[in-house]
Write a protein that binds this DNA or RNA. Structure first.
Lengths: 237, 237
DNA sequence: TCAGTTTGACTGAATGTTCAGTCTAGAAAC
DNA sequence: GTTTCTAGACTGAACATTCAGTCAAACTGA
């Protein structure tokens, strides 16, 4: 609403700027070691101002994580919605939790590290637990209805959508850990491939990895072609 | 080696006492919020003594987590070794990461919460990262060789043991999160069942849950019969 | 056997640092 | 002139770690 003299923008912009700063710091230093002073510095303001906007440190961090999850989900599902086959949509869904986003300047790269912090905090802080719970439910629901759609379209076999959703999301979470911790034996590409194989086997559609020798090429392709819809999933049941 | 007058035992016992105390506190308060004073109090000593034994707080906590993982793995695998079919061994392996241990007084219940903390710390502290890395490798190797054994015995079909191990361990980690955070839709029993179904499907053996209506009963059985070997896995390929 | 010495276990009281959150007051917008 | 923002300086509490010793068991040598 208000335009500051120095061009720093409205109060809302100020808030978001701080939230983004907070996210960066959380990813770097971890949730508990994130200091208000760090966030303030990165946002180019004073600690006092940060507290002025967010009553407490916890509120700031919780809101930051919520923002991150929400934007991640929103951009991901919008990409998903543009795909016409259920199998393709599922592939995109899996890609969005395995393969790195192109890091757009205005979309803070949802780091898997953030998830680790989210889980750990959720264990002890009810406030955060609520955020995670909702986020997880939404995620599983998304998978569930995607499966139902695929079944109605005849693309997928008759498995229990709920069971499949629970299992797939667990698998993705597990791989997220490996990716976040940069496990040498499980990089993002392998996680993606194994997950796709699981999904294909379980739901009964055939899937062939596009670039046999090129997981990196796959990632590169994501980075290069923004609008290019991945169409490797072939349905033939 | 030395016996104290008050019966507090040798230095080694002291150390272990502190490590166990540390584990309890970590589970309760979380890794970063664990204070030396807490550990000292629970071990019935002074903060200074804790530092006397473990140079720093980090060393104490890292060692505590290592101890926990090692005893968990050791007791689990010894149970596994007593089973004669590969499918049965696999089931026990899965049970040990899904279903709660009987909480023996001298074996601190490996809480899944500990894993969350382990992962989060591993992300930022190389020392901890090493511990996790080794632990994970060992775990996947265990699964891999179990699969190979099963294949040689003709119990399992011809899947890639390495791929299966990576996928299964990711799935288990993912479920561990849900269990740790007490997700209402994914309790330990359901996680166990879904994981077993995945394993059975993937490896090609048939598996029927023992107590259809009784996941809880299943856990209860574990709690009751210590030596009773679970023998629900039937191989028939 | 026993004074003297060493050594490891242990403690209470500092010390110093790190931070979240407050206070005061000035600048900008309306 | 009043409300909304903003920052610098500050406060108070929490905590890890240090230090300067105490205490008792174990060893040593006569």
């Amino acid at each position: 609403m208000r335009q500051r003299a120095d061009g720093s923008g409205t109060a809302d912009q100020r808030r978001e700027q701080m939230l983004r700063a907070a996210l960066e710091v959380i990813v770097e230093r971890g949730y508990p070691d994130t200091r208000i002073a760090d966030v303030a510095q990165r946002a180019g303001t004073s600690p006092a101002l940060v507290i002025y906007y967010f009553k407490t440190k916890d509120q700031l961090l919780t809101e930051a994580i919520r923002l991150s999850e929400d934007t991640w989900y929103a951009t991901g599902t919008s990409r998903v919605a543009a795909i016409d086959t259920a199998a393709g949509r599922l592939e995109e869904l899996i890609a969005m939790s395995c393969l790195p986003e192109e890091d757009d300047a205005d979309a803070p790269n949802t780091s898997w590290l953030l998830w680790l912090d989210l889980w750990t905090q959720a264990a002890r802080h009810p406030e955060v637990a609520g955020v995670r719970q909702k986020f997880d439910e939404r995620w599983r629901d998304t998978i569930t209805s995607l499966v139902v759609e695929g079944q109605e379209a005849g693309e997928f076999g008759p498995v229990s959508p709920a069971d499949f959703a629970v299992t797939l999301s667990a698998l993705l979470d597990g791989f997220a850990i490996q990716i976040a911790l940069e496990d040498p034996t499980v990089d993002a590409g392998r996680a993606f491939e194994l997950t796709m194989r699981f999904a294909a086997g379980e739901l009964g559609f055939t899937w062939v990895p596009r670039h046999r020798a090129g997981r990196q090429a796959d990632v590169g392709q994501r980075l290069a072609g923004v609008g290019a819809v991945r169409n490797g999933a072939r349905v033939d049941r």
